[in-house]
Each structure stands twice: as C-alpha cells, then as structure tokens.
Amino acid sequence: MSRRHMIDLDQISAEEIEEILVTTDSMKEVLSREIKQVPALRGRTVVNMFFEESTRTRISFELAARALSANIVNFTARGSSVEKGESLIDTVRTLQALGADMVVIRHSQSGAPYLVAQHFHGPVINAGDGRHAHPSQALLDLFTIRERLGQLAGLKVVIVGDILHSRVARSDIWGLTRMGAHVTLCAPPTLLGPSHYWLATWPGISISHRLDAALEGADVVMALRIQKERMQGGLLPSLREYSRHYGLTPERLARLGEHTLIMHPGPMNEGVEISPEAATAPNSVIEAQVTNGVAVRMALLYRLGG
C-alpha cells in the first residue's frame, strides 16, 4: 500500500497486482449498486491531464473519480496555456498551486509521467505515454481475463498487431508475464522490430510472424489497433493485406475455439485488425474490458489516494 505513483507495471510485484485485482472486484460491486458512489475520496481533487485525444480512458478515469466522490477537473492541452508555450513542468506546478491532489496524465511523449511525478507533490497515474506504458489498460485486461477464465497463470495469450508502437502491449506483457501467463507476440516484422529487443527484456515470451500458427491452443487473443496516426509510410503494404494475414477475420474466428477470449483495447478499426463478427462474437470481451476499466481505475485512485 506504500506505492506513490502508477506509471508502469515493470516494478510491480505479482502480490501487488493481486491486491489491485481484489480491490477492483470490490469496486465492481460498488458500480453494480443503485447508488454507484462511495465517499472514500471525498474532498480530493483529481486532475485529468490529457495531452492526447482519448474517449474511453479519460471518461473512465472521470467516472472512477466521481464514483469515489473525488472532485475531478479535466485539463486538455487544446485551449490551455500550453498553446501559449507553457511547459509541462509549469503546467503541473500551476495545477498543484490550484489545489490538485492527484494527476492522471496521457501524453504522446514516452516518459512524460516520470517528469510530472518529479514536479508534483501527489500521486501520478499514467493514462498512456507514447509507446511506453498504459498500466491501467493492462490491469483491466488482467482483471477481465481472470474474471472470465478464473486464472492467469499458465494461460496462453497471443497479442497480435502493431506491437512496435503499442504501449498497451508493453504493459500487458509486464503484467501477464508477472502473473505467470505465456505471451506470444505476433506481427509482421515491420510492426515488431528486432526479436532480440523483446527477448532481452522478457526472455520467456514467444514471437511469431504467422497468426494461424500462433493461435494454436490460445486461451486469449488480443488484437491491437493499427495506429494510422503513427504509421510512417512503408511499414505495411496495404491495410487489406494486413487484414488478410493478421486480422481476426470471420474465417479465423470460426477456427478459434469458443473458449478463446477475444480482446481489443479500443478504439477498433473494424475490418482491419478485427472483423465486426469477431468484435461481437459471444467469446468477445471487448465491452467487458471497457466496463471493467472504471472499476480498475477506481482501485488505482483509491489505493494511491491515501
């Protein structure tokens, strides 16, 4: 309970993840009530600092803070003094002087949350920074998998798609491997980079460039979004070709067992990395991921907010 910030899952123990998942379960019960609010963080002020666009993560943190009775203020770079050239550090100092107790930050620059943590007196939660980390997303993935399959240890989880640019993949690999799951990364070489980069950090994971082989015996398949905004020409021949080789198409859906969970962190490019059929299949838990996101973020805000 002594953690101050939640910036990445690299330093977190399996025991701590377990505690967060247990807290999440209690928070989910709160969200199932008619009055979905408890007074735990009454009088606290959380600032949602979003330097990058986001729907689900920003609203999810907002709902989580409100469910704990905290005050939440949304800060977006657009329309703020950032446009007049105010630096990140000055912005954080200003928010602190205005009375912020906690900061949730989304930034396109990897590492930005560490800088914020150095200049802010309270807890900092990373809501996604560049390609680096997205810990609340990984924790909600862990929670959703365990909720459906009852465990994490020993499961085979395939992460397919634009892994090179993905902060979700990095945080998921930390979380899944720490909880004893087997992770297989699957992507075209241009969207993965050199294998030794991944194996140096996570020696236990598998790497594949063929999705059909990778899906053999998979308990979970997690499709990542093709990040069109991060694509500098030449990484992919065409979206159609990508979809044929790496998309969760209706044909691949038919070959997957009914028990293989289908996940996607959103927002989806339907028809590219995932077909509408796969997204809405009975074994898809994509909506559950969104719903569980609020409970996970409540658990993080509560545990750090003390």
């Binding site: 807290t23 019960e29 709160v30 735990a40 545990r303 003390g306």
Partner: peptide
C-alpha cells in the same frame, strides 16, 4: 470505503 479515518490512517484494504 465509508470510514472517516482513511485520510488520517491511509488506505486500508477493501473487503467484500
């Protein structure tokens, strides 16, 4: 989650 000493004593584990 309803305790009045959360702030003073720090966060306690939440039960069911």
């Amino acid at each position: 989650l309803y305790r009045d000493d959360l702030r003073r004593r720090g966060m306690a584990e939440v039960g069911k």
